[in-house]
């Protein structure tokens, strides 16, 4: 196993992990924290927060960085929105992040299920801010409209990497389509905060990173996240380099100068990591 740089260190508390994992199992819910083998799971579960993953735990796409399983998908659970709303209540969350696997097999890509989930969370937990991290929904306006119509506070769609690396990293996705998702959301609902993010350490250049920032801003993106790509297993695409904390700081500074409402950039940043803070523009400490 390759030795990790000193800054890739996280804490792990088994009791906290077991507590949140137990609640998820009881309510038959998935978290992307667990499915993606997120390095921040221990920290987030200790703070009793998690990012929910709806529409099952099997994805119809085969991104080469992602730990979520691909294959034969399961039927959509109609009780999932209500169960998720109950989990938000049980964890006493003030801000909830809901993502999903990509469901190209569903006519609407799962848009209606997203809307049902947003509505169920809001009904049981008035006052909780809701962030959805959506797949590209094949860039279909009417499907995006369904999610927008449920009025989440934040719509995030991750562009994941620079345009030049798409074929090797996200072979079934399209850089321009992902930018279109952000652009469409902002055009249709300027009051909804838009968000995207990339992983670095996949072989991208600084210029390519700044180009993603420029493209995202042009599309109307408010919040931008940058984190280190970490390989889930030897079967996944390799880490080309470990980007230093100083370089992440430089990305943050330049991103702020370019005009993002908020930018999170450090090795262990993930798109939903400290999402409440990002929504508040960094005012929560």
């Amino acid at each position: 196993m390759e030795k990790k740089p000193a800054w890739l260190k996280v804490s792990y508390n088994k009791e906290a992990v077991d507590e949140v994992s137990g609640l998820m199992a009881k309510l038959k819910l998935n978290t992307v924290c667990k499915e993606a083998n997120c390095p921040s799971l221990g920290e987030c579960y200790k703070k009793r927060t998690a990012t929910f993953m709806i529409l099952g735990n099997i994805c119809t796409r085969h991104c080469r960085f992602c730990n979520v399983s691909s294959g034969v998908v399961e039927p959509v659970d109609p009780n999932e929105p209500q169960h998720l709303a109950e989990a938000v209540n049980a964890l006493d969350l003030k801000h909830v992040v809901i993502t999903s696997v990509t469901r190209d097999d569903l006519e609407d890509g799962g848009a209606k299920h997203f809307a049902n989930t947003i509505n169920a969370v809001r009904k049981l937990n008035p006052g909780v801010s809701i962030e959805v991290l959506i797949p590209d929904l094949r860039g279909v306006d009417k499907h995006l409209d369904i999610v927008i119509g449920a009025k989440p506070d934040v719509i995030n769609h991750n562009v994941e990497t620079v345009r030049e690396l798409y074929l090797g990293v996200r072979p079934e996705a399209d850089y321009d389509r992902s930018m279109y998702v952000i652009q469409y959301v902002k055009k249709r609902a300027p009051h909804i905060k838009t968000k995207t993010g990339i992983m670095v350490g996949l072989g991208e250049t600084d210029e390519q990173v700044y180009q993603v920032m420029d493209d995202s801003l042009k599309a109307g993106c408010d919040i931008f996240t940058i984190g280190q790509y970490l390989r889930p297993s030897a079967k996944h695409i390799s880490v080309k380099c470990y980007v230093t904390p100083e370089k992440f700081e430089e990305y943050k500074k330049i991103g702020e100068e370019k005009g993002f409402h908020y930018i999170a950039s450090s090795p262990l940043v993930r798109s939903s990591y400290r999402a409440e803070e990002a929504l508040a523009g960094g005012k929560i400490k």
């Binding site: 990790k4 260190k9 804490s11 792990y12 083998n37 970490l230 889930p232 262990l268």
Partner: peptide, 20 residues
């Protein structure tokens, strides 16, 4: 309880494991 007892390295990161 809560002290970091040991560190383990997995594919992604090094985890500081707290004592139960």
């Amino acid at each position: 309880k809560g002290d970091v007892l040991f560190e383990i390295e997995t594919e992604k990161v090094v985890s500081e494991v707290e004592s139960m």
